[in-house]
Design a binder for these strands. Structure first.
Lengths: 219, 219
DNA sequence: ATTCTTTCGAATTTCGAAATTCTCGCCTAT
DNA sequence: ATAGGCGAGAATTTCGAAATTCGAAAGAAT
């Protein structure tokens, strides 16, 4: 979709994931048509795709709204992300070679450098944006050798939607400085040690902040 | 989407999942507009949604085609389905109550009855359609108490896409009669015994027919 | 005072046609 | 003979307006 409709999709998606659209806010094709220099029909196509992917919700004959959020929604997405990411890591640990290790190490190096630098300072938006991109790169590198395009695509959606909902409740993205540094190091170490279960455990700990009561056990 | 575009979406989806559209076949809005008594724009909206969900593929400026298939695609989807379904079953086993058990038992009863009756007979399309619906109902009942709308939605997509690809290579849906009867019984038994690991193992066996080499171990 | 109906402005959805882009056969030059 | 460019036809994409539907306010009836 390099077409106009695709460009609108990309811009809208970025704004939503960046927290620029309030949860539950109406997204009206005619209004957006002005901001994006496109017809209402083109906007609609973008909205339909965003709705199918879960970023917004579509009410028949009633238009589109940004997804509503809440702690339970965040935890549901976190749970799904853990599922996808532990499986992707498990597969990568089993299949990945030197290239995977190198990419993962590089991504972690960049991420750790940022997190280390951000420990003390005040957090401006630019830094957070950079950190979020590095965080994404690291987690994608972790599952990069899983061999399943479907898993990678699902992870990308889950990652962005997780960010979308977290940022809506907390603009600082729940940045936890030193803790994050340690958690990411744990994930990296387990992955390089080819310890799939340890890596899964480290990933679950990584999401503990968002955990809610779940009778399911390990989660 | 009770709108026209939504109706077209539903009909197209049914036809694709039922195997009525050859893999890789072009889906041209103008042509489809005649068959569905709708404008090309409305068809396009349906196609965009189908593409976002993975039933068809969208090539920018080059239209839409039914997803291409192959054994590796089938196994990738099977692998994803196993992931979703074992997790959904695990959660349901932990959270589900009497209602869940009752629904699951009922769904299995209907399915087993059909499979038992279909063991000897020749398979006509009507029977297969009925069996497929019962199969879906059983697998959905299995994860019905997982408590995650996202997991249920993903399972529905994965289930239908699995069927779409299997039916494309084998119109009999790989119906395996007596084996299926046993496999579904194993799944039910483990679920009712609240044995999450046993249930996961039974599910993995259920998909063994489609297995390909995967270095990942349990898979 | 409450509930039900009616009406009207606004938003969603759909359409048919225009504008853009792609595809493929044909022609030309090397 | 073959590679590369040209152009006609077809398909995709976009648009602006028409048709449908919704939501709320005003009015009537109990």
């Amino acid at each position: 979709m390099a077409a106009l409709s695709g460009a609108v999709y990309a811009r809208l998606r970025d704004e939503i994931v960046a927290g620029a659209v309030a949860p539950g806010a109406k997204l009206m094709p005619q209004r957006l048509a002005l901001r994006y220099a496109a017809s209402a029909a083109a906007i609609r196509e973008a909205l339909i795709r965003l709705a199918a992917e879960g970023f917004i919700e579509s009410l028949p004959q009633r238009g589109f709204r940004a997804a509503r959020t809440g702690p339970d929604v965040i935890w549901e997405i976190a749970h799904f992300r853990i599922l996808i990411e532990t499986e992707g890591a498990r597969l990568s640990i089993a299949r990945g070679g030197m290239e995977w290790e190198a990419n993962l190490t590089a991504a972690h190096h960049r991420l750790a450098h940022l997190e280390s630098r951000m420990r003390g300072e005040s957090l401006d938006a630019g830094q957070l944006r950079l950190w979020s991109a590095s965080d994404r790169a690291f987690h994608e590198a972790l599952i990069g050798a899983c061999g399943s395009a479907r898993l990678l695509a699902q992870h990308r959606l889950a990652f962005d939607q997780f960010k979308q909902h977290v940022i809506a409740l907390d603009p600082t993205l729940g940045f936890r400085g030193a803790e994050l540094l340690q958690e990411h190091a744990d994930i990296l170490q387990a992955a390089l040690a080819r310890d799939a279960e340890g890596c899964a455990a480290a990933l679950r700990r990584h999401f503990d902040t968002y955990r809610r009561v779940t009778p399911g056990g390990a989660g």
